[in-house]
């Protein structure tokens, strides 16, 4: 039990990532407001970035920048951070695109709620 707890504690970033991922996907799937969905997507993605970065980092490492003095100290794996940079950029563009769509949908429906939209489309009268 204690060993297990130790494992959990030492790998805490992964567990945080899993929790964040769960909350993010719950937001996407259960909230009907489009903004909430968008925020959920962003939470989810940042959770995955967290996992990636945690995999690349090491506890006693330093930033992978060449120093003249302590070049012998271990540095963290720079690859994940480089990749996640791409990931962040992608998520920004997805967000921008989604916001454009939200504006367009609002112009037609006068709401940003997915449920209301489908109600209107199916011809159900507004309350």
């Amino acid at each position: 039990m204690k060993i297990l707890l130790g494992k959990v504690l030492i790998n805490y970033p992964y567990f945080a990532a899993v929790i964040l991922f769960a909350i993010g996907s719950a937001t996407v799937l259960t909230r009907s407001n489009l903004f909430k969905k968008l925020i959920g997507i962003n939470i989810m993605e940042s959770a995955i970035f967290l996992m990636f970065i945690a995999a690349g980092s090491r506890r006693d490492g330093v930033v992978p920048i060449l120093h003249m003095d302590d070049s012998l100290r271990p540095y963290i794996n720079p690859l994940p951070s480089a990749l996640m940079l791409t990931g962040i950029v992608v998520s920004v563009s997805v967000t921008a695109f989604a916001l454009a769509l939200i504006v367009r949908l609002y112009r037609f429906y006068g709401t940003t709620d997915a449920k209301r939209m489908s109600d209107i489309r199916n011809g159900v009268a507004k309350e």
């Binding site: 996907s25 996407v28 489009l34 969905k37 968008l38 997507i41 989810m44 993605e45 998520s91 997805v94 695109f97 989604a98 769509l101 939200i102 367009r104 949908l105 037609f108 429906y109 939209m117 489309r121």
Partner: peptide, 17 residues
Amino acid sequence: GPNAAKAAFNYLILATL
């Protein structure tokens, strides 16, 4: 038209997931 935007948004959300 709204249908295209709605479909695109749904697709975007699920695809990003």
